[in-house]
Amino acid sequence: MADNFYNDILIDHNLHPIHLHELPCATCSNAGINPTCGDQLTLNLVVKDGLIKDGSYTGVGCAISQASTDIMLELIIGRTVEDAKHLCELFDKMIGGEITDDELEELEEAAALQNISKMPARVKCAKLGWKTLIRLLDDNS
């Protein structure tokens, strides 16, 4: 593990999440589960006319899954469904270690998770929210 893996961005999103709450007005929700630890999170979105107007998540998880999901929501709220899907692809590329510097910039704070590619045991944690998002968007488009 990289010594500085739990950097300030991850620590901050884990201890003080912005989007960890219920979302009664959600238009779609989906649950994701990480079978290695049994952690479960539910992702809620408000999608109108191809635009992600709001989003939240609930559930428990490790710092990496929680921070990753929180950062993801911060990134995609206000964007189109197509943009969000594109960012999910970029995130996958980053975890796979194949991302360019320009693409990395598009991911904004999510770039804080770049070193996860050096921690294969934790890839599933980092991807949990993003995989749940892709399924949610595919199921509702």
Binding site: C37, C62, A63, M119
Partner: peptide
């Protein structure tokens, strides 16, 4: 602290 994070430390 989530147990996965404990193990990572």
């Amino acid at each position: 602290v989530h147990p996965h994070d404990i193990a990572a430390v």
